[in-house]
Amino acid sequence: MSVEARLADLGIALPDVAAPVASYVPAVRSGAYVYTSGQLPFVDGALPEAGKVGAGVTPEAATGYARQCALNALAAVKALVGSLDDVARIVKVVGFVASDPSFTGQPGVVNGASNVLGEIFGDAGVHARSAVGVAVLPLDSPVEVELVVELKA
């Protein structure tokens, strides 16, 4: 089954590629790998919520935002290479969670990204990962996610 067909079966429509908010590009290819820039959870060009997880932003909402970040990253990959069917595997996910100092559930939040990648790519979506709590993210986003993707030969 193609990745596009799998997305349709899951009822997932990839968004348009989010416009960079500074001086960078959404994704870069180097050899067989694509590295995405950190993706914020933009929906129709806007953040759905701002603030810190554990202080205003719930962990449940942040998990959904991490999922959106992963979809935004996949949109950047697709725009660069033409088709997600060219993806051999998701190699690494790095998730940043803007956290209240008392919040320690960053891995659960970043599961939003990991889980949707597994749903879309199956075994090829299993990846290495980091989930990092930070004081603040661009535009006061609660979550940011970047991917490393290996392409088929």
Rank of each mutant, 00 (worst) to 15 (best):
V87L: 07
A113L: 10
A27C: 09
G31S: 08
P101I: 12
G112Q: 09
G122P: 08
R29G: 00
A98D: 02
Y33Q: 14
P138E: 09
P41N: 03
R67F: 02
V93G: 01
P107L: 13
V25Y: 02
L147Q: 09
V53F: 07
G56M: 15
A66P: 07
L40T: 06
V43D: 07
A19V: 09
D100A: 15
V34S: 10
G118N: 07
P101L: 12
S2W: 06
E144H: 01
A13C: 03
V43N: 05
Y35C: 02
R29W: 08
Y65P: 00
V43G: 01
P138M: 08
V143G: 02
A50T: 14
V148W: 04
A61F: 07
R89D: 04
L80C: 10
S141L: 07
A124M: 03
V126N: 05
L40P: 04
Q68E: 13
A88F: 09
A79P: 02
I120N: 07
A135Y: 12
L40C: 05
L80R: 14
D100M: 06
E119G: 02
P15F: 01
V57I: 14
G133K: 10
V149H: 07
D16F: 04
D85G: 06
A32I: 13
G95T: 09
A75C: 12
V132T: 14
V109K: 06
G105E: 08
F121M: 05
V109G: 01
L147S: 08
R29C: 01
V28F: 02
A61I: 10
A124C: 09
K92L: 05
V21D: 04
V21E: 03
G125Y: 13
V97M: 04
A79M: 08
L14T: 10
V3D: 06
T58R: 05
V97H: 06
T63L: 13
L139K: 00
D44A: 14
A13K: 15
G108V: 06
A61M: 11
V87I: 11
V148F: 03
M1Q: 06
L137P: 00
R89G: 05
R129A: 10
K152C: 09
R67K: 14
S102C: 04
V53E: 13
V28K: 15
I12R: 01
G112D: 06
N111V: 15
P41A: 04
G118R: 11
L74Q: 11
A5T: 11
G56L: 15
D85R: 10
V149C: 08
I12G: 04
M1N: 05
V93Y: 01
A79E: 12
V149K: 12
V136F: 01
V132A: 04
L40W: 00
P26C: 08
F42C: 07
D85Y: 10
P142Y: 06
G51E: 03
A66M: 11
F121W: 11
G51L: 11
G38I: 10
V43A: 11
T58L: 08
V148D: 01
